[in-house]
């Protein structure tokens, strides 16, 4: 299940997927090969992603972990067609979307195969639209009549454990945890094959965090592929099958969650593992982190 992007390392064999049987799918939901993305023009042009190769199978949960500026959001935006690749290919549900025109993208998006959940639901939900209107929007865009759209969002609300009376509220009138679940529900209305979530739990407190993670776990059992983007290994560790570590625009490590966390190879992954807040920390960790930081800056 590892990919050419994560260069093989001298120490030890390629990690084996021990946690779950390899689904050995005929067709990955998402396949990215050799993706390069640049921002800026001419002299200000700089590389944000370099030679990223990653594929996500149906029903698989992949965590993409990296620090601010590592390019993880850009990766998501490339998959959604919001930024152009300067090299490499992106294939979504078997369709090569790398050179798609705006009109083709719109058609693809309306099908709703890939959905995206923004980090901050307060900003990604229109403050002047009720929860019902926000949830119905993707369906209305597909041409579903309003009445039918409203009928279809009701069961979704149950799925994300929200009471029906929330439908008439505005995003500003519900709690942060409820908003995040509304955002997740909105991503599910089109019955997508792949849902990408940007930091879905980092702004939430424990109770809401557990609830959102449980919803995602349930979602996974329905065969939907999930990509979780986070700066925190700890917040994806709970549900990710595989973890890909992005560092300065490159995938430096890809493997099963267990392997990456228990036997990290790249110094940055080691720092991530050692930095993730856990309940049982040893004083020795501090010295280890200091050493890793020093190693990464030189």
């Amino acid at each position: 299940m590892t990919h050419p992007g994560s260069a093989p390392r001298a120490d030890g064999p390629e990690p084996q997927d021990t946690r779950r049987d390899d689904p050995s799918p005929a067709r990955p939901v998402l396949a990215i090969t050799g993706l390069d993305v640049h921002y800026g023009l001419r002299r200000r042009r700089r590389k944000v992603l370099h030679d990223v190769t990653l594929s996500v199978a149906p029903g698989e949960t992949v965590g993409i972990v990296g620090e601010t500026g590592s390019g993880k959001s850009t990766l998501a935006r490339a998959v959604l067609g919001l930024v152009r690749a300067s090299a490499g290919t992106v294939t979504v549900a078997g369709e090569d979307v790398t050179g798609h025109s705006e009109a083709k993208w719109r058609r693809l998006r309306r099908r709703g195969t890939v959905q995206y959940v923004f980090q901050d639901p307060l900003r990604s939900l229109d403050p002047d639209l009720t929860v019902a209107d926000s949830l119905a929007e993707p369906l209305l865009l597909r041409g579903v009549p309003r009445g039918e759209a409203l009928a279809r969002i009701r069961p979704l609300l149950e799925r994300v454990r929200l009471p029906g009376e929330l439908l008439d509220r505005l995003p500003g009138e519900i709690s942060g945890g409820q908003r995040q679940r509304v955002a997740v529900a909105r991503a599910l209305v089109t019955e997508p094959e792949l849902v990408i979530l940007d930091e879905p739990v980092s702004a939430l407190d424990s109770a809401n965090r557990v609830q959102v993670l449980q919803i995602l776990k349930e979602l996974r059992t329905t065969g939907v592929a999930i990509v979780l983007i986070s700066h925190d290994l700890g917040s994806v560790a709970g549900i990710a099958d595989r973890i890909a570590v992005l560092y300065r625009g490159e995938l430096v490590e890809t493997g099963t969650a267990r392997d990456v966390i228990r036997r990290p190879r790249h110094p940055y992954t080691r720092l991530l593992v050692s930095s993730a807040p856990t309940l049982h920390t040893a004083p020795a960790d501090r010295a280890e982190r200091a050493a890793l930081r020093a190693a990464l800056t030189t």
């Binding site: 424990s206 557990v210 709970g238 807040p277 309940l279």
Partner: peptide, 15 residues
């Protein structure tokens, strides 16, 4: 709940 959150969903699960 706070402890369980880490043990079930956090890194503690592997550690």
């Amino acid at each position: 709940l706070l402890v369980a959150e880490h043990e079930q969903y956090g890194l503690d699960r592997f550690r």
